[in-house]
């Protein structure tokens, strides 16, 4: 596969083309992934999530810059929502990252969710692998602006940062389920605004109530991303978390789980495709039988599965 070879040789256009093939599910995408897979697993993946307008893109830019100053190369996947009505999307995260565009050690790719509801796109994980195989040291995955339940990022990232801003609700919001459960780190952005200290207290209170208490208590930092304030401390916390999960085997466990989920996902999608192709001629007939109430979908499914999984 030419694209994969050129990507591995450091060709940026090939990297870009590979991500397109992955995203559009071109036939060659499978071959590209096969060739890239042995070269993955070296990058550290940082997830950044939080509500719309929390400053995720701005923070991503500042974090990327800080890693560049340490001499590390950075890949960024920035996800924005696809319209469920037209399929179109405005991918606007790059606006906050213009200062990184001409740094050859950084590669930024915007992705639309394309129907995925977990805060990422279905192909984000494979795009991360492409950046990993390309040789990026740190890969930052920025989710769409999330509400309370888009938690796919934990499956993709080694360390997840939840970005919050003051003024978004009372302390009950902080004990609800969802994104507040997934932070390995919390950061309060726009911390020069009123209510920042109150928010820190509320997150602390939520963490105090955590009945599953592990040795790792997510640190809470305060930043002003637009000014670059607090980024050093945030990065130090990321470093501590990395050390912690590398040391106690948690990183290995997370990656094992990720590999297992990935295998089952691909297997499931493959089986679904095979079955759909297999019954495509008969599908309308089945639907007709159901409409006339001659049979029910459960009987049909049992029949099809028995026939295919002999």
């Amino acid at each position: 596969m030419e694209v994969a070879k050129e990507l591995l040789a450091g060709n940026r256009l090939a990297l870009s083309r590979a991500i397109t093939a992955i995203e559009n599910e071109y036939e060659e995408a499978t071959d590209i992934m096969k060739e890239l897979y042995p070269h993955t697993g070296h990058a550290y993946v940082l997830g950044i999530t939080g509500p719309p307008g929390a400053g995720k893109s701005t923070l991503t830019e500042k974090i990327a810059k800080a890693y560049r100053e340490q001499g590390k190369t950075v890949g960024i996947i920035a996800v924005d929502p696809t319209s469920p009505f037209t399929g179109g999307a405005i991918l606007g995260d790059r606006i906050r990252m213009n200062s990184l565009t001409l740094d050859e050690g950084v590669f930024i790719r915007s992705m639309g969710t394309r129907g995925s509801l977990g805060g990422l796109s279905h192909k984000t994980a494979d795009a991360v692998k492409a950046l990993d195989a390309f040789g990026k040291d740190i890969i930052i995955v920025e989710t769409v602006g999330v509400g309370q339940s888009e938690v796919d990022i934990v499956k993709a990232a080694d360390t997840t940062i939840v970005v919050l801003i003051p003024g978004m609700g009372d302390d009950i919001q902080a004990i609800k389920a969802g994104i507040l459960e997934i932070g390995d780190l919390f950061t309060v952005n726009k911390s020069d605004l009123d209510g920042a200290d109150k928010l820190v207290r509320e997150i602390n209170m939520m963490l105090d109530l955590d009945s599953l208490m592990t040795d790792w208590r997510p640190p809470i930092s305060k930043v002003i991303a637009s000014q670059g304030e607090g980024i050093d401390l945030l990065l130090a916390d990321v470093g501590k978390h990395r050390q912690y999960i590398e040391g106690n085997g948690e990183l290995a466990r997370r990656r094992t789980k990720r590999a297992k989920d990935e295998l089952l996902d691909i297997l499931g999608a493959g089986i679904e495709r095979r079955i759909k192709t297999h019954i495509s001629d008969r599908l309308n007939g089945y639907v007709e039988q159901m409409k006339k109430h001659e049979t029910d979908p459960y009987t049909l499914v049992n029949g099809i599965l028995a026939e295919m999984l002999k």
């Binding site: 319209s83 037209t86 399929g87 999307a89 405005i90």
Partner: peptide, 10 residues
């Protein structure tokens, strides 16, 4: 966007 394109706005 409304035509169904993905628009990267810089």
């Amino acid at each position: 966007r409304d035509a169904g394109f993905e628009v990267i706005y810089t």
